[in-house]
């Protein structure tokens, strides 16, 4: 059996990639993908610990996270389409009208 630490390391790596992608990329679609990556990194960690602890709670929680993530993507993509229609771009740095 694969030790739990492998899963957790993979999860951490995925999360870091997601976070870095969030920070360095400007394309809104890639940002979304990065967010998804982070969410799924968390999911992976939850499932791994659930298996180690023989406790189904973590697995149940993953289903909730997936549901929420789906809703988030739906809303986010709708926003993205709206932004693209008015600004003709998906570069988030171009969308900074609310600068204080």
């Amino acid at each position: 059996m694969v030790p739990t630490s492998y899963y957790v390391l993979l999860s951490a790596a995925l999360f870091t990639i997601g976070a870095m992608g969030m920070l360095v990329r400007r394309n809104a679609i890639v940002l979304f993908m990065s967010v998804e990556l982070m969410l799924n990194a968390a999911n992976l960690a939850l499932v791994a610990f659930a298996r180690q602890q023989v406790n189904p709670d973590g697995q149940v929680l993953v289903f909730f996270v997936i549901t929420v993530a789906a809703a988030e993507v739906a809303v986010g993509l709708a926003l993205l389409v709206a932004i693209f229609r008015s600004k003709r771009t998906t570069d988030v740095d171009e969308v900074s009208t609310l600068r204080g």
Binding site: M22, L23, V92, D93
Partner: peptide
């Protein structure tokens, strides 16, 4: 100053 309008700055601060 913190409200730059750049989403990625917000993300960095959040992180």
């Amino acid at each position: 100053v913190f409200q730059s309008g750049f989403v990625r700055t917000y993300a960095l601060l959040f992180l």
